[in-house]
Computed example of a mutant assay.
Amino acid sequence: MEMNLQTLFQDFNPSKFVVHSCLLIFTALLALKLDNSITWSYWAVFTPIWVWKFLVVLGATVGTYVWWQYPHFRLEGEAYIHYKAMLISLAIHLILLMFELLVCDQLTTGRHVWILVFIPLIFISIVSIAICIWSVKHDRSYELELFCAVNILQFIFLALKLDEFISWSWEVVFVPLWILMCLSLVGVLYSIIFAGILLRTPEVNVQQRRTSFNSALAYTFTVIPILVFQVLLTNRLDDGLPLSYTVVVSPLFVSYATLIIMSFSSKGGNKWWFGIRKDFCQFLLSVFPLLQEYANIAYNNNANRGANVVPSEPPEPYRDEETHKKVKESKKSQKNQKKNEFMKPVVPITSIDMPD
């Protein structure tokens, strides 16, 4: 089993890591607040959400400053598409922030109707349909937009139920979510069957088998806990099941943990957040040059080898010019040394004096 810092952060997606970490903390705080285990105000409970939105606004602001301050950066590859995607994401998050502010104020004061509170979220759901089409056309990620687009009916039902305009049970109110979870379960079942087929196919290489198995495992530990949470929440709201909200949301922690782990292999991400313009691993090594030394070390857990630390050469994108020059000269020197050793005679030559 071999691990190194470079491999760990090479496919790391910092955006997903921040979002899922903030949602995990927020879910835990909200459950504790509903159980009266903490006496914080809802404005304090929503702190992880405020941190998330602050990072989004700050990242877009810095990215916009770099965009206008350095015009030659706009010529780098698909810079216009990345920048436009960042602005679209910023607009979605600002509207989502408006919804979150209204929710927090409604929970604190109760001076609004829930239909008014949900208007920004419903608007996001409608706009997200067009954004998903644009994202597919330009090969961009659209997880948040897709989630909002497929749940527009669920948001309307929630608003009507909270305002008591409909007297349906929560089991009926969650019908759109039940349908979505059934489709997700079909996807999980398909991924498990596909992974099983690849494991029994000798023509498939080990890397493809490992990838399919990890994907099936990740989907399973993401979807199943959400389904368990939905069942517990429905029984808690309809039948008054004697469970605390902390117990009800506990399956979500498994899903959040899985999503956080998956963020280390998600790749992608917009390179214009905070004006980075490069992969996170390259940016991390350029900001902290000392990490290059640790990025070139692989830790091997093989007991048959004498050393636990095995140095390895980084690929070209992670090697600066000076390091590349030194490695090149070292290889040339080793090659010349081997050549000289090969040309040395094996049997020493001695002079033989012939008798007269």
Rank of each mutant, 00 (worst) to 15 (best):
residue 1 M to G: 08
residue 1 M to N: 11
residue 4 N to Y: 00
residue 4 N to T: 04
residue 5 L to P: 00
residue 6 Q to R: 01
residue 7 T to H: 11
residue 7 T to Y: 07
residue 9 F to C: 00
residue 9 F to H: 00
residue 19 V to S: 10
residue 20 H to M: 15
residue 22 C to R: 03
residue 24 L to H: 11
residue 29 L to Q: 12
residue 30 L to K: 04
residue 33 K to Y: 10
residue 36 N to E: 15
residue 36 N to T: 13
residue 37 S to D: 15
residue 40 W to M: 11
residue 42 Y to G: 00
residue 45 V to D: 01
residue 46 F to W: 10
residue 53 K to I: 14
residue 56 V to K: 02
residue 57 V to S: 12
residue 58 L to W: 15
residue 62 V to T: 05
residue 64 T to P: 00
residue 66 V to Y: 12
residue 67 W to F: 02
residue 73 F to D: 11
residue 74 R to N: 01
residue 75 L to W: 09
residue 77 G to M: 12
residue 78 E to D: 15
residue 80 Y to W: 14
residue 80 Y to L: 13
residue 81 I to E: 14
residue 86 M to F: 02
residue 88 I to Y: 03
residue 89 S to D: 09
residue 91 A to D: 01
residue 92 I to K: 00
residue 99 F to P: 00
residue 99 F to I: 02
residue 107 L to S: 02
residue 107 L to W: 04
residue 109 T to C: 06
residue 110 G to F: 00
residue 111 R to N: 03
residue 113 V to N: 08
residue 115 I to L: 10
residue 116 L to P: 00
residue 119 I to S: 05
residue 125 S to I: 03
residue 125 S to Y: 02
residue 127 V to E: 02
residue 132 C to I: 12
residue 136 V to T: 08
residue 136 V to P: 01
residue 136 V to K: 09
residue 142 Y to P: 00
residue 147 F to T: 11
residue 151 N to P: 00
residue 152 I to K: 06
residue 152 I to G: 10
residue 156 I to C: 09
residue 159 A to C: 02
residue 162 L to N: 01
residue 169 S to E: 11
residue 172 V to C: 12
residue 172 V to Q: 12
residue 173 V to N: 04
residue 173 V to R: 07
residue 174 F to K: 08
residue 176 P to F: 10
residue 181 M to H: 11
residue 183 L to T: 11
residue 185 L to T: 04
residue 187 G to P: 02
residue 187 G to N: 07
residue 189 L to V: 08
residue 195 A to C: 07
residue 196 G to K: 13
residue 196 G to N: 15
residue 196 G to F: 15
residue 198 L to E: 09
residue 202 P to Y: 15
residue 216 A to G: 03
residue 217 L to P: 06
residue 218 A to I: 09
residue 222 T to K: 05
residue 223 V to W: 00
residue 223 V to F: 01
residue 229 F to R: 03
residue 230 Q to D: 06
residue 234 T to Q: 06
residue 236 R to C: 08
residue 237 L to Q: 03
residue 237 L to C: 04
residue 241 L to H: 12
residue 244 S to K: 13
residue 248 V to E: 02
residue 250 S to P: 05
residue 253 F to Y: 14
residue 256 Y to H: 06
residue 257 A to R: 07
residue 257 A to W: 05
residue 261 I to A: 13
residue 262 M to R: 14
residue 265 S to L: 03
residue 266 S to V: 05
residue 268 G to W: 08
residue 269 G to S: 01
residue 272 W to K: 02
residue 272 W to N: 01
residue 274 F to H: 03
residue 276 I to Y: 05
residue 277 R to F: 09
residue 278 K to F: 06
residue 281 C to M: 05
residue 283 F to C: 07
residue 290 L to G: 13
residue 296 N to E: 15
residue 297 I to L: 07
residue 299 Y to L: 10
residue 301 N to D: 13
residue 302 N to C: 13
residue 312 S to W: 02
residue 313 E to D: 09
residue 313 E to G: 03
residue 315 P to V: 10
residue 318 Y to Q: 04
residue 330 S to T: 13
residue 335 K to D: 08
residue 338 K to H: 10
residue 338 K to S: 10
residue 349 I to Q: 14
residue 351 S to F: 15
residue 352 I to A: 15
residue 355 P to V: 11
residue 356 D to Y: 09
